[in-house]
Deep mutational scan, measured.
Amino acid sequence: DLSALRVEEVQNVINAMQKILECPICLELIKEPVSTKCDHIFCKFCMLKLLNQKKGPSQCPLCKNDITKRSLQESTRFSQLVEELLKIICAFQLDTGLEYANSYNFAKKENNSPEHLKDEVSIIQSMGYRNRAKRLLQSEPENPSLQETSLSVQLSNLGTVRTLRTKQRIQPQRTSVYIELGSDSSEDTVNKATYCSVGDQELLQITPQGTRDEISLDSAKKAACEFSETDVTNTEHHQPSNNDLNTTEKRAAERHPEKYQGSSVSNLHVEPCGTNTHASSLQHENSSLLLTKDRMNVEKAEF
Rank of each mutant, 00 (worst) to 15 (best):
V190A: 10
S150C: 07
A101S: 06
Q11L: 14
S35Y: 12
R169G: 13
L155P: 14
E302G: 15
L290S: 11
V82F: 03
E99D: 07
A220G: 13
F92I: 04
N102Y: 14
T277A: 08
H237Y: 12
I30N: 07
S156T: 08
N143H: 13
L50P: 01
G274S: 08
A133P: 08
K31Q: 02
K19E: 02
L217W: 08
D244N: 07
D39H: 09
H269Q: 02
Q138R: 02
T194I: 12
D39N: 04
N105D: 13
T149S: 10
T230S: 02
S216T: 00
L81F: 05
G274V: 01
G56E: 10
V270A: 08
T292A: 08
V34A: 02
N157D: 09
G56W: 03
R255M: 00
V82I: 06
A224D: 11
T68I: 04
Y260S: 15
E22G: 01
P24H: 00
I41K: 00
E28Q: 02
R132S: 12
P33T: 08
G199V: 13
S185F: 03
N191I: 02
S139G: 13
T160S: 14
K222Q: 07
T235N: 08
I88V: 10
H256P: 13
S288N: 11
S197N: 10
G274D: 14
S139C: 03
A223G: 09
L217V: 11
P272S: 14
M296T: 13
Y104H: 01
V190I: 12
E99G: 02
D66G: 04
G97C: 01
H284Y: 07
K64N: 03
L137P: 03
C196Y: 02
Q147K: 15
V10A: 04
L158P: 14
N242Y: 08
S139I: 11
E99A: 01
L29V: 02
K134Q: 15
T248I: 03
C26Y: 00
H278Y: 06
H256Y: 14
R169Q: 11
I25S: 00
K87R: 11
M127K: 13
P257T: 07
A279T: 12
Y260N: 01
P114R: 13
S113C: 04
T247A: 06
Q138E: 10
R130G: 06
G159R: 01
A252E: 04
T76A: 08
E8D: 10
Q283K: 04
C43F: 00
F45C: 14
F106S: 13
E9Q: 03
D1G: 05
A224G: 05
K87E: 10
Q125R: 07
F303L: 15
E8V: 06
L282F: 15
N15D: 14
T275I: 02
V190D: 15
T230K: 15
L21F: 15
V232I: 09
I41R: 03
N15S: 06
P33H: 05
P257R: 10
A107V: 08
K31R: 13
Q239H: 05
A253T: 09
G199A: 09
A101V: 06
S176F: 00
S150G: 04
L282S: 07
A107T: 10
K222N: 10
A301P: 08
R70W: 07
V7D: 01
L21S: 04
A223S: 08
R169L: 11
K192E: 10
S3T: 13
K31E: 08
S79C: 00
S3C: 07
I124M: 15
S156A: 11
S3Y: 04
S139N: 13
C43W: 00
S287C: 06
R165S: 01
A133G: 05
I206M: 04
E148V: 06
P61L: 00
P61H: 00
E142Q: 11
M127T: 14
S122A: 15
C60S: 01
S280G: 13
Q59K: 03
Q173R: 14
F106L: 12
E9D: 03
T149A: 07
E140G: 12
P114H: 05
A91D: 02
E202K: 03
L48V: 14
Q80P: 07
G210E: 15
Q125K: 13
N234Y: 11
Q11H: 13
S219F: 11
G56V: 03
L151V: 07
A4S: 10
H284Q: 03
L290V: 10
D66V: 05
H116N: 11
R255S: 14
T96I: 08
A107E: 07
Q201K: 09
N131D: 13
Q239K: 12
L51H: 00
I30L: 08
Q147L: 08
I89L: 03
E28D: 09
E84V: 04
T76M: 04
L217S: 14
E32D: 08
G128V: 03
Q209P: 01
L245F: 11
V121G: 14
K259R: 09
C43G: 02
E285D: 10
N52Y: 05
D213E: 15
N143D: 04
E258K: 09
E229D: 06
N105K: 12
K192N: 05
I20F: 06
N111T: 07
S216R: 08
Q147E: 14
D218H: 04
E249D: 02
R295S: 11
D184G: 12
E22D: 01
Q138L: 13
C26R: 01
D39G: 15
K167R: 08
K87T: 14
K49N: 01
L136V: 13
T247N: 04
Q93R: 04
F42Y: 15
L62V: 02
L164R: 10
G159A: 10
K221N: 13
R251C: 14
L146V: 10
S71G: 05
E28A: 01
H269Y: 09
E226G: 10
T76P: 15
L62S: 05
T247I: 11
S228Y: 09
C225W: 15
L117I: 06
R6L: 05
S152C: 08
R165G: 04
E142D: 12
E8Q: 14
L50H: 15
L29M: 04
E140Q: 04
E142G: 11
F45S: 15
L268F: 06
Q209E: 09
T277S: 00
P272Q: 05
P208L: 00
C26F: 00
L268W: 10
N143I: 06
V270L: 00
E214D: 12
C90S: 12
R212T: 11
H278D: 15
A193T: 09
L62I: 00
N15I: 13
A101T: 10
Q73P: 05
S183F: 04
